[in-house]
Design a protein around this nucleic acid. Sequence first.
RNA 1: CGGGGCGUGGCUCAGCUUGGUAGAGCACCUGGUUCGGGAUCAGGGGGUCGCAGGUUCGAAUCCUGCCGCCCCGACCA
Length: 575
Amino acid sequence: MRWSQIFIPTLRDDPADAEAISHKLMLRAGLVRQLAAGVYSKLPLGFRASRKVEAIVREEMERIGAQEFHLPVLHPGELWKESGRWFDIGDEMFRLKDRRQGDYCLGMTHEEVFTAIARDELRSYRQLPQIWFQIQTKFRDEARPKSGVLRGREFVMKDSYTFDVDFAGLDVAFDKHAEAYRRIFARCGVRALAVQAASGAMGGSESVEFMSVSDAGEDWTVTCASCDYAANLEKATSVVSSVDDPREEPGDIEKFSTPGIRTIEALAAFDENASAQRQIKTLVYSVDDQVTLFLLRGDHTLNEVKLAEATGVANFRAATAEECREALGALPGSLGAAGIAELPIYADDALKGRRGMVTGANEDDFHLRNVSVERDLDKLQWASLREVVAGDRCVHCGNELAVQRTIELGHIFKLGLRYSEAMKLTVLNDQGREVPVVMGSYGIGIERLLAAVIESYHDDNGIVWPWSVAPFHIVVTPISLKNADAMQKAEGIYHELQKDYEVLFDDRDERPGVKFKDADLVGVPLRIVVGPKGLEKGVVELFERASQQKEDIPLDRVFDEVRACAARLAEVEPR
RNA sequence: CGGGGCGUGGCUCAGCUUGGUAGAGCACCUGGUUCGGGAUCAGGGGGUCGCAGGUUCGAAUCCUGCCGCCCCGACCA
């Protein structure tokens, strides 16, 4: 491709509204342009890179026996009402009406449509398992699109769905996907951590996210340096640091006056025996309109995703001060669970076995001491509620945990029967009995993966594409269009290399500096500079983008050298 | 949805406090000199200052409302 004939509008300055590195570079290198918040047009270079990623995804999906579909993006509301999600999902779904006032929506994911096809067509366990996938645009009206293509409202996703007769089959399908995902990310040059994740409103039993460590990410991932434990912060657990409790069961609960004390810190400062670790933090939420208490150690923080997992309810909010007073008789700051029998109470694991604790007395300006969790609190439901912090200990090996920002590249779910039951997708099993099909669903965000690649592969001069997803492998740069000899040699090299590689020929009438800057910005892995200086000695310059190494190559060795470089560059360790 | 910021040629920004003929650099067009890491000189084209209303003799500038975009948080099948 001649540079003069491909549209690559590079930008000299950083765009004003871009913050994330990948966002800046995608704009500057002329990969994308923004149309609206979270909506981007792919320009030729961006589209090429995107298709490279898609090709890898396609190959690896086909390797595990997946079949490619292409489903509509316009969905009848009816289908989503069947699964119930029409009502569960709020403003994040783009909804519209047709001319007859019928409900429609734009697909934010495709469980419903794939399940409907399966329901219409699958009758027997003999037709299973099936692995179906597509690479299709999704629409989600995100409350806050951000970081360019990292979180858009319209984006391309590879989504796949598996159908099995039983849960053992689902496990197989799930593992196949995990393996395919590992290969996909590795081939794109990205080191992806497989981490335990919360399933959220998706339902289902188990889910794993694939994360790339990056400051541009929005998720927090907990990892253990010594074993392979890794989990989303929303799911992560840790060993509780030990606390010096009294050996003996303390005396009876004792109420004491704490005038004006409203916070954990204030109480710790007020009473030397009430350090944060020795307090029970009582949080009150309205969970599906039911006032519910959540107990944590004073120095721990509640993670609301864990709250949702523990209660199985997505509809919750912190209770108002007034609701607290009504239910417990006191305002926040003096709340406690002692003597409360009629409200559901969830307690974090870290409170197990604790004694001699301090907590609110449900009377303003009073607290209780000598509270023993198991002795004095009724009907506790134990759960992991607290948020892990860096430095906590790993539950598997006891070593220190780290918390890092990560980009979620993919997410795989064991859906189980959630959709097949709701939408009546059944087959006859080998006993002739009608059974619901066991499903899984699996997604990879294509543009997000591309952005993650750039987050991992760039330097001060621009993008440094890994060979596998580079929109072009090589750029042939003649120094001057006026030098006939150089132009002719450059053309020759360009034509020859094109047989095996994707090559750009920078035939623009620009000064060399401009061409070099652009080539660097755009990130072409190899550059061959053809100029009079070199040709006098019978050489051209081979420049490797990643290492910035230049080497003079005799004209007759160009193809061999390129081949060697290409082979080496194709074998990069994921980062 | 809460908080903050921004909206001025294609891009990056100045001008706004204190109202008075819309600016710079880059990009673009013409010509010259240049040509191995974003050249330079001369000339030139291009802007309803986000939109609407108001105040004023006069508004990019002050006031009100709306829209859009970015950032933090909440949210995130």
